[in-house]
Amino acid sequence: MNSETFDDDVQTSIEGPRQIGKANHHTTAASITLTTYLPLVASVKWVRAYIRNLPWGQGQCTLGSAEWVQAPLDGREPMGWCRAEGRGQGTTEHARWVSVEFFSWSHCNSREAKLEVGYYMPKYHGEHSEVIEIAEILWQEPSLGYTNTPT
């Protein structure tokens, strides 16, 4: 998971890319669920899911470009034999989470998935600013597992 700032207000948390894998002859989908964590006080602005074909090697079919394609979160296919479905949002004691499940039915191309979540942090002043600072520090505590640790 990475957090980046794209402008003064919206920050982005990114999970992935992670390999989805290959399906079992179009009958059983390969799948992976990606979850990213945000500060507990964050407000989610948008959720974006992306899928791409991995570069194919000898003997693999060519299902199209290896460029990232944005996948709708309602199960529609952004390209053949794959889709993404939103799995919800929630909170833990110290963080807010967003989860998306990715599916691929291609038996000859491996695919990768990536999840991006845009969010706002509240802009409090005075006594509330200390609470916000503590919340931001807590969600980045390595022992809680919400930081940039590989899975």
Results as ranks from 00 to 15, higher is better:
23 A>H: 02
92 T>M: 06
7 D>G: 06
39 P>A: 00
73 L>Q: 05
57 G>W: 07
150 P>D: 05
84 A>S: 06
121 M>Y: 02
123 K>A: 13
101 E>D: 10
139 W>E: 15
59 G>V: 06
100 V>C: 03
61 C>P: 10
36 T>K: 00
56 W>I: 09
132 I>A: 08
11 Q>K: 14
52 R>P: 05
18 R>L: 09
117 V>R: 00
63 L>S: 13
48 R>H: 12
38 L>Y: 07
84 A>P: 06
95 A>P: 02
138 L>V: 15
52 R>E: 11
149 T>Y: 10
119 Y>K: 00
65 S>V: 04
91 T>H: 13
15 E>R: 13
104 S>I: 00
12 T>A: 10
130 E>G: 15
88 G>T: 05
12 T>V: 15
12 T>W: 14
121 M>K: 08
134 I>H: 13
23 A>S: 15
68 W>G: 00
68 W>Q: 01
128 H>W: 11
23 A>I: 07
131 V>G: 07
112 E>H: 09
121 M>A: 07
75 G>E: 08
67 E>M: 13
81 W>P: 02
15 E>I: 11
2 N>E: 14
53 N>G: 03
136 E>F: 11
7 D>M: 07
67 E>P: 01
50 Y>W: 12
107 H>N: 11
93 E>V: 07
122 P>R: 07
99 S>P: 02
107 H>T: 03
38 L>G: 05
151 T>C: 09
63 L>K: 07
65 S>P: 04
35 T>M: 06
1 M>Q: 01
122 P>C: 09
150 P>E: 07
74 D>S: 11
92 T>F: 05
128 H>D: 12
42 A>F: 02
142 P>E: 03
94 H>Y: 14
48 R>E: 07
149 T>H: 12
71 A>V: 05
115 L>P: 01
20 I>K: 06
128 H>F: 12
110 S>T: 09
119 Y>R: 01
104 S>P: 03
32 I>G: 06
62 T>F: 14
4 E>K: 12
147 T>S: 15
34 L>S: 10
6 F>A: 10
5 T>C: 11
69 V>H: 10
101 E>G: 06
21 G>H: 01
82 C>N: 07
19 Q>F: 02
82 C>V: 08
83 R>P: 00
122 P>A: 08
98 V>T: 11
137 I>R: 15
58 Q>N: 12
8 D>K: 14
144 L>E: 09
6 F>H: 10
47 V>S: 04
106 S>I: 00
25 H>Y: 12
74 D>F: 09
53 N>M: 05
78 P>T: 02
34 L>G: 02
124 Y>W: 15
32 I>A: 01
30 A>V: 05
91 T>K: 14
